[in-house]
């Protein structure tokens, strides 16, 4: 009985692991097959044919797309963290009138359906002359990352003992010095977590990137992959798409594996404690 349940347990673990990993695995082996080889199913890697990886960069400005994604996500993370940290101090540490209402509003914004602001955002970006530019995307993506950054950092901020802040006040620190000299270093791990989550959100963003860009050179990775076409209009270049997918997924997966614990902490701080 005991042995049987042990076996059942391990079968379940293996099944979940396979389910989680198989699509990525299959994308990787497919990306190394090209031409007619792609039109037969294979479960095991046979040979490493880099044709698709060359084609990704050959047929479209994929390098530029990756760079765009990095610029947009990087800037969005920097701005979100910079603004979010000071706001989180105010929300997490200072009792001022209207705090609960404001915090509630910010949480509500993070639950906005993106499409609800689409036409207004389109008008805004166009009137600022930012249509089909990276700053336009950065502005739009801040709507997704800033509220949630403030929210997660606030929950982290609340966990820091208030005595440390009080000791700093007794030592003569102003609120700004408290943020800069005491909380910023203490919040560094939380900032890494939150920044990483914000980076992933921005890196994966599709609707704004699809709607607010026009030319291939200005696209970020998600619309670039979604709109990849082959030599003929009727057949999609699956090998190239898989190669592109692997290229943009592997760095994210490395980040996730390295910062696994922090990401879990950030996800749960944003949700469970809410």
């Amino acid at each position: 009985m005991k042995v049987l349940s042990r076996i059942g347990f391990w079968l379940l673990v293996i099944a979940i692991g396979l389910f989680a990993l198989f699509p990525l695995y299959y994308a990787i082996i497919s990306s190394f097959r090209s031409g007619s080889a792609l039109f037969t199913t294979a479960y095991l890697p046979e040979r490493f044919d880099p044709t698709n990886y060359i084609a990704v960069f050959d047929r479209q400005p994929f390098g530029q797309n990756i760079l765009n994604s990095i610029i947009v996500a990087g800037t969005v993370v920097a701005i979100s963290l910079g603004l979010g940290m000071t706001a989180a101090y105010a929300f997490g540490r200072i009792a001022f009138r209207g705090r609960a209402l404001l915090l509630m509003t910010i949480l509500a914004v993070s639950m906005f359906p993106q499409v609800a602001v689409l036409s207004g955002m389109f008008e805004l970006i166009r009137s600022l002359g930012l249509y089909n530019t990276l700053p336009g995307l950065i502005l739009a993506n801040l709507m997704l990352t800033l509220p949630f950054t403030i929210w997660v950092l606030t929950t982290f901020m609340r966990e820091l003992p208030k005595e440390i802040e009080e000791a700093a006040f007794v030592d003569g620190a102003t609120p700004w010095i408290v943020v800069r000299r005491v909380f910023l270093p203490l919040m560094a791990p939380a900032a890494v977590t939150t920044g990483l989550l914000a980076f992933i959100v921005s890196w994966n963003e599709f609707l704004f990137a699809l709607t607010f860009t026009l030319t291939n050179e200005r696209r970020t990775v998600p619309p670039a992959i979604a709109l990849m076409t082959g030599s003929t209009a009727y057949e999609l270049p699956w090998g190239t798409i898989m190669a592109a997918s692997v290229i943009v997924t592997v760095p994210i997966i490395v980040l996730v594996l390295v910062f696994q614990r922090k990401i879990v902490a950030g996800l749960t701080a944003g949700a469970v404690k809410g």
């Binding site: 990993l21 599709f206 994210i252």
Partner: peptide
């Protein structure tokens, strides 16, 4: 770590895969 991998893959990429 393994179950986090699908979560981290961009939705577009998941859909394409």
């Amino acid at each position: 770590a393994i179950i986090l991998i699908p979560w981290a893959i961009p939705t577009i990429v998941s859909a394409k895969m």
